[in-house]
């Protein structure tokens, strides 16, 4: 028999912090602000996540990785993972640790605001220069744009700003 251990929220969250973005191994789904709700009843865990972009092909992978990680917890017999749209994910949900992890990977954190003419600014994640140009709002994944640093001459990516007052 397994040793009884209470599955509290803190324990579940610390386990979820081990689940990384499938493409960015320096950032966890907790850092990205994707965890909306965790609950445990006896030996059953239920986790509700917020999808970053609705068409993101990484979502089923994240769902599977979460369930597998949670089942490693002592005292966990079942783990249910589902996504909700009841609260939209916004880029300000990325935590301080998430911002550090993104920079470490060479991705600029999302800009904090967009000007009324649609323009926005981020600094180069490599050298910190503000002398950057947007090459393409749309990048290799739904959540990232492509930029170029005119100071250190590195191309880099930035997470897109997603906020509820965009219309």
């Amino acid at each position: 028999m397994k040793a009884e251990k209470i599955l509290d929220e803190e324990l579940i969250l610390s386990k979820l912090a081990e689940v990384k973005d499938p493409e960015i191994d320096t950032v966890s789904i907790v850092d990205l602000g994707m965890v909306y709700r965790v609950a445990a009843v006896d030996t059953s865990i239920k986790v509700t996540l917020l999808p970053t972009f609705s068409g993101c092909p990484a979502l089923p992978i994240i769902e599977k990785n979460c369930a597998e990680a949670l089942l490693e917890l002592d005292g966990a017999d079942s783990a249910e993972v589902e996504f909700t749209f009841s609260v939209p994910w916004t880029s300000d949900r990325v935590t301080e640790a998430g911002i550090r992890g993104l920079k470490e990977f060479g991705i600029a954190p999302p800009p904090e605001f967009i000007e009324s003419d649609g323009s926005w600014h981020v600094d180069c994640p490599y050298c910190g220069s503000t002398f950057v140009t947007v090459e393409n709002i749309f990048g290799p994944t739904a959540c990232r744009s492509i930029l170029y640093c005119r100071n250190c001459r590195n191309p880099f990516e930035a997470m897109k700003l997603v906020s509820s007052n965009m219309h």
Binding site: F53, S54, F85, S86, V87, P88, F138, H167
Partner: peptide
């Protein structure tokens, strides 16, 4: 809920 999600992406 779904409209709020889609609208943010539609912006771009």
């Amino acid at each position: 809920d779904v409209a709020a999600k889609a609208a943010m992406e539609l912006y771009y």
